[in-house]
């Protein structure tokens, strides 16, 4: 039996829209479900207190600090390296064997699962370099993990800057570096910023790699060589070991709000960037 094309069309379009609808509903459901269960338990004390009896009571302040330190440090180290790589790839070289190798490295790094980063960070930073399970081991591991994202987004942002701007800058007597810093980076900054913020979000969400490198100490880290538990890992431990479901929901809500805020901010930056490049 052969259906009339118009009938098939209607059926397929309905099906496709239904699938799109299901996807969006699933996303909305996840966010609303977590927030509905978690928001009522978030209070000033919860955010500002230390956990008591393994996190059954008390708050999550040390984990907020831990997440901020590990993720912040990772992005702080990865951003200059990633942006410099992007500048090198776009402004300082021609496509050749070397750029192919660099791109291959970044592409492969982007595909490596976080648990492998965790294993590597555990032997290399924690054991071989003697940093132990610590904030700095976790941060350096995440640095490698987010580096490809920052390279990729920065490169795209830099390539979007019109070629004519570069000629104008050379025309009035700038060196290459002056052209890069004063014209290209200035125009590409919102795009680069978007990549950096998304990387920050990814670092905050990361669990497996952090678990093997930063450890899970409940105390407030006193130095970068102290172990520290991040929010995502705390949420995992609370829910998996069934320590406290209410605190798990509340911790997840804090995580989700942070990710939502970062995504919205990145989106806003990006729309500004698109407006400006035009």
């Amino acid at each position: 039996m052969r259906l009339h094309p118009a009938t098939t069309e209607r059926a397929v379009v309905t099906l496709l829209w239904a699938m799109a609808g299901i996807t969006i509903c699933a996303l909305a459901f996840i966010i609303i479900f977590i927030l509905a269960h978690g928001l009522p338990h978030i209070s000033r004390e919860f955010l500002a207190d230390s956990p008591r009896s393994m996190g059954r009571e008390g708050g999550i302040f040390p984990m907020i600090v831990g997440s901020a330190l590990v993720a912040g440090l990772a992005v702080l180290i990865a951003a200059p390296i990633g942006v410099a790589t992007a500048i090198y790839l776009t402004e300082y070289t021609r496509e050749g064997r070397l750029t192919a190798v660099i791109r291959f490295g970044a592409d492969c790094l982007a595909g490596i699962p976080s648990i492998i980063f965790g294993l590597f960070g555990f032997v290399f930073f924690a054991i071989v370099l003697g940093m132990g399970l610590s904030v700095i081991s976790g941060a350096l591991t995440l640095t490698l993990m987010v580096l490809p994202t920052i390279i990729r987004t920065s490169e795209e942002a830099i390539r979007a800057v019109p070629q004519a701007y570069r000629e104008v800058s050379y025309g009035v007597g700038s060196t290459r570096w002056q052209m890069v810093t004063r014209v290209v980076l200035r125009s590409a900054l919102p795009g680069i910023g978007t990549g950096i913020i998304l990387s920050l979000g990814r670092s905050i969400s990361e669990t497996a790699a952090v678990m093997l490198t930063a450890g899970s100490a409940l105390r407030m880290p006193q130095s970068l060589l102290d172990s520290s538990r991040t929010l995502a890992l705390h949420f995992y431990i609370l829910s998996r070991e069934g320590i406290s479901m209410t605190n798990a929901y509340a911790t997840a809500s804090v995580l989700i709000i942070a990710i939502l805020a970062l995504n919205l901010f990145a989106y806003w930056l990006m729309s500004r960037f698109v407006a400006r490049v035009r």
Partner: peptide, 29 residues
């Protein structure tokens, strides 16, 4: 050399800044 031989291009190409910054860019360099 490029400062001593100034070039104007076929299409007007303002940098995405203020008029003042466009003009002051060369002297600042």
């Amino acid at each position: 050399l490029r400062r001593r031989i100034g070039m104007v291009y076929a299409t007007p190409m303002p940098l995405p800044w203020s008029i003042y910054d466009n003009l002051a860019y060369g002297p600042k360099l």
